[in-house]
């Protein structure tokens, strides 16, 4: 009888315990995630503010935006070929160019951005044209109830009720973080719905259609709430993004 065989017979089955313990910790992590996540976000948010290397940005919830695109590839649009079409139940359908939008009165908002997957970017400036301004200019019909937004990635869509769309904190945004919105962040023009989870703020906005009922958008077909108020939807309790 050699020692390896005696090891097998007499040794304690600790490997199995480590294995099951890891599984248990994983399950515990899922259960306690909301609490852990809030604590970590607070801590990492504070650290990221004084981190010259930017490495904390790579940690989960370490601050900063994450790039999500549901399309395989998204065409690039610029001042030469960008168009925003407003149609549906309006008296004056029209198509705006980037120059047209830039010529309209601009509104600047500085609020937090909250993603439904947990990350939050504090104090992010957005500038653009109030959606209500574009709707008023188009003349919304009497039977209108909602807006459907479409995007030039060819896939994404979003929706708002007419009342939500007329809020003063809903913009057709041209600038973000004090610069023109780049392609990766949904430029040249994206929607910005300040009080809602960020999936409502559709990137690469190309169409605004006034409808007589809410047509759920891309993520809403996949189970997300249509009325996506931060902290009051999607089963989450985040602080509002004021």
């Amino acid at each position: 009888m050699n020692s390896e065989q005696s090891e097998e017979r007499d040794g304690r089955p600790l490997g199995r315990r480590v294995f099951l313990g890891t599984l248990g910790l994983g399950a515990l992590g899922v259960v306690t995630a909301p609490v852990l996540q809030r604590g970590l976000e607070g801590f990492l948010g504070a650290v990221a503010g004084q981190d010259p290397t930017g490495l904390t940005g790579l940690l989960p919830n370490g601050g900063g935006f994450r790039y999500y695109s549901v399309a395989a590839s998204v065409p690039h649009k610029n001042a030469a070929n960008y168009q925003l079409k407003i149609d549906g139940l309006v008296d004056h359908p029209r198509t705006y160019t980037l120059a047209d939008l830039r010529a309209l009165p601009q509104t600047r908002l500085v609020k937090d951005v909250q993603c439904v997957t947990g990350w939050r970017v504090p104090g992010t400036p957005f500038e653009g044209v109030r959606l209500s301004h574009l709707l008023d200019a188009a003349g919304v019909g009497a039977t209108a109830k909602a807006i459907r937004f479409t995007c030039f990635d060819g896939t994404y869509s979003e929706s708002l009720t007419l009342d939500q769309a007329r809020r003063p904190d809903v913009l057709v945004a041209l600038r973000m973080q004090n610069k023109d919105i780049g392609h990766d962040h949904g430029g040249p023009v994206r929607l910005y719905v300040a009080p809602m989870y960020f999936y409502k703020s559709a990137k690469w906005l190309s169409g605004i259609t006034v409808t007589d009922r809410v047509e759920p958008g891309y993520w809403e077909h996949l189970g997300y709430d249509v009325d996506a108020w931060v902290g009051r939807s999607n089963g989450r309790t985040d602080e509002p993004t004021n």
Binding site: G26, V30, A33, Q37, P60, V116, G223, N234
Partner: peptide, 22 residues
Amino acid sequence: FTHLTPLMWRTSATFVHDWLAL
């Protein structure tokens, strides 16, 4: 499989998945 569990669980799962990945 987003329809299998409520959104809250999915967010928690994302959190664990991210940190454990690291």
